[in-house]
Design a protein around this nucleic acid. Structure first.
Length: 262
DNA sequence: AGATATGTTCATCC
DNA sequence: TGGATGAACATATC
């Protein structure tokens, strides 16, 4: 699930569910999601602290407290849900944060590919986010264009490289490239000035809608709405979509709308 | 049984 | 050094 729009949705969950509230109890049900911190230390560090304004960078989420910062990454299946303490605990609820008699934040994750970190100080936050490129939502046109121009790899690989641009995942990259009419395998450094401008514009538009939806919506008019069709057709021109694999990730594109570069 | 899945990291080869 | 590829991580579903 989680790409930038999903994580932005989780940031809003933090904002509405726990911001301004004091952590009353931390319950670690599966310490396998903790990185570099014990369940005991996590509890000691957070119980009694008040959550402040949460932040997001790319696919990383920072739950700040004024003291230590809880840093979250959701891998492919993680999510953050606002529940009530007496709601039944689900199989994949890994850590529970009770912040009121009727409010409990839950880190839920099936596959445990990523998880939670505790940054005791700002320097550790910086260390965890070290190597992340500019956030895809916040990057300006000039920065975006120069980041792309400097890379020789395929444009899809570059878009999903978190050290170039933070936040885009597999679905978003395919969606944006389809809207910008660029073939994923084209080299980023071969894009023309107008290709790059179009790509930036479409990235913004796509992100705006997806953030509103809280995910990359599988709408009929979007490429993403057809990824799982048995014989997918381009929602724009009806041509059969092509599938391939790039850097180990399933890639979908329209051979007609997204012409071979060069 | 095997392939696939929205992520990241590490090893390896060119 | 960059870039491409594949495996690994853990688990569910088609």
């Amino acid at each position: 699930m989680p790409e930038l729009p999903d994580v932005e949705g989780f940031r809003k969950v933090l904002e509405s569910c726990v911001k301004g509230r004091v952590v009353q109890r931390v319950e670690v049900r599966d310490a396998g999601v903790l990185h570099g911190v014990s369940a005991r230390r996590l509890r000691e560090a957070l119980e009694g602290r008040r959550f402040t304004e949460p932040e997001r960078h790319g696919k990383w989420l920072l739950a700040r407290t004024g003291g230590p910062t809880l840093v979250l990454h959701f891998g492919m299946t993680g999510q953050l849900v606002c529940a009530r303490p007496d709601d039944a605990v689900e199989a994949h609820d890994r850590v529970l944060f009770t912040v009121a008699r009727d409010r409990q934040l839950r880190y839920r994750d099936q596959r445990k590919l990523q998880g939670l970190w505790l940054a005791e100080e700002e320097l550790e936050v910086a260390r965890l986010l070290d190597g992340q490129g500019p956030d895809a939502m916040a990057v300006d046109r000039a920065e975006f264009e120069s980041a792309l121009a400097a890379r020789r790899g395929s444009v899809k690989t570059v878009l999903t490289d978190q050290s170039v641009l933070a936040g885009l995942g597999n679905l978003l990259a395919d969606e944006i490239l389809w809207r910008a009419r660029l073939r994923p395998a084209n080299r980023a450094s071969d894009l023309t000035e107008s290709d790059r401008r179009r790509l930036y514009t479409q990235m913004r538009r796509t992100l705006r809608s997806a953030v509103t939806a809280g995910c990359v919506p599988p709408r009929d008019s979007w490429l993403t709405g057809h990824r799982d069709d048995p014989d997918p057709a381009c929602p724009r021109c009806g041509t059969s979509l092509r599938r391939s694999r790039m850097a180990g990730r399933g890639t979908v594109w329209c051979p007609r709308c997204q012409p071979d570069g060069a």
